[in-house]
Structure formats: C-alpha cells, structure tokens
Amino acid sequence: MARKPLPEPKDTLPNESRPLRADARRNRDTLIEVAAQAFASHGTDASLEDIARRADVGIGTLYRHFPSREHLVEAVYRHEVEALCEAAGTLAGELAPDKALEEWMHRFVGYIATKRGMADSLRILLNSNSKLFADSNGRVPVALAGLIEKAVAAGSIRADVDSTDVLHALSGTYSMPNSPEWHDRSRRLVRLLMDGLRWPVQKG
C-alpha cells in the first residue's frame, strides 16, 4: 500500500522566517522519505551524500534544509511517528479490525527499523530535545489501543488484551540482534502475536 503524502511542513528553512516554496518543500519531503529508507536499511552507515543523490538533489540542498545529521534525524523521526499514527485511522477504515491491527503492527516494525538506524543521533537528541519524544511517543500507544479496541469489539481477537503488553512485545524488536534476519524475525513475531490474539476466538 502506497504511503500517504508527507504532511505540509510547519517549519521553514533554518534561520529563515519565510515559508518554503513549493519546489523547496518537495525537495525537503523527498529527502525525508529517502532518509527514512536509508536509515532503515543501512543504519548509522547511511551516507548523507548518498541520501542527497538518491533524492536527486545536491548535498548543499540537503544541508540547507538539515544543517546536521541530527536535524535530518529529527525530521525523519517526526514524520515516521506521524505516518504510523495516521495509518491507524486509514487502515481501520479500509480493513477488517483484526487485519487492520495486523497490518499496523507490520508498519510498527518498519518504524522500529528506521528508529534503530537512527539510534546514535536519537540519543543525542534525547539529551538536547527531550520535548521531541514527549510530544510524539504518547501518540503511538493511543493509535495501537484504538485498533485493539475495535478488534475486541468486533470479536476478532480475545477480549482480555492489554494494549500496553502488545506494545512492549512489539517494541522488543528494537533490541533484537542486528542481523540480516532481523526483518524476517520481526515479521514472524507479528504473526505469532496475532495468532495468540486470535486463538481463543478461532477455537471458540
């Protein structure tokens, strides 16, 4: 399923007060999309020069929007949280409640993959901009809880589910060993969790 377009940026170029032009906004959005993919695939080895090349802009354009790796990481992190939370409502409107929950959990794994790839920079941001995490982290549990409530109400998963337990299980993928099998293991974990959530309903 294609990802939704990036939300309209509320910020401006660094040290400027005028809004972004349409072409500058497109460049910024593309850089964020490409960077998210690069961080998920290559982690801390992701090259800013390669990100700029894949976004079809010069490295100078990247630095005009994001003066440091941490500025880029912050923008990617905000976008990933926003996309994950918006996906909950979109999926709930398109799929059966248990299928919407399962697909959202797979997207959460993608979010974790990107977050793992930005770990070093996120630690720096945690020390310098803790408000970033306070503003965003609370939204993800709410999105998951809403999907679980809908699936419980529909009778497609067990009724004794605690969304916090499910989130902790999913978040455990963050600390799994970094290996080529990480994505496959994470997808298997989602399937295992969904089997457990559905089991009493299926047996009943």
Rank of each mutant, 00 (worst) to 15 (best):
L144M: 09
L144P: 08
L144D: 06
A145E: 09
A145L: 03
A145D: 10
G146V: 08
L147E: 02
L147F: 04
I148E: 05
I148G: 04
I148Y: 02
I148T: 03
E149K: 10
K150V: 12
K150P: 06
K150A: 14
A151L: 01
A151S: 03
A151P: 03
V152S: 09
V152E: 09
V152F: 04
A154Y: 00
A154T: 00
G155P: 01
G155H: 00
G155C: 00
I157T: 01
I157W: 00
R158K: 12
A159G: 10
A159W: 01
A159Y: 04
A159T: 07
D160N: 03
V161K: 00
V161G: 02
V161I: 04
V161F: 04
V161C: 03
D162S: 11
D162N: 11
S163M: 03
S163N: 01
T164R: 12
T164A: 13
T164I: 12
V166M: 09
V166I: 15
V166N: 09
V166W: 03
L167M: 06
A169V: 15
A169P: 02
A169M: 11
L170R: 01
L170C: 08
L170M: 13
S171Q: 08
G172I: 05
G172W: 07
G172D: 05
T173N: 10
Y174K: 02
Y174T: 06
Y174C: 03
S175I: 15
M176I: 09
M176Q: 12
M176T: 14
M176K: 11
P177R: 10
P177K: 06
P177S: 12
N178A: 15
S179D: 11
P180Q: 04
E181H: 11
W182Q: 12
W182S: 14
D184Q: 10
D184C: 08
R185F: 12
R185C: 13
S186F: 06
S186T: 06
S186R: 04
R187K: 10
R187H: 11
R188C: 10
R188M: 14
L189Y: 08
L189R: 07
L189F: 06
R191F: 09
R191N: 15
L192A: 14
L192V: 13
L193I: 12
M194F: 10
M194C: 11
M194W: 09
D195I: 02
D195F: 08
G196L: 10
L197Q: 06
L197T: 06
L197C: 05
L197G: 08
L197P: 09
L197Y: 01
R198I: 09
R198F: 07
R198N: 03
W199T: 10
W199M: 15
V201Y: 01
Q202K: 12
Q202D: 06
K203Q: 14
G204D: 12
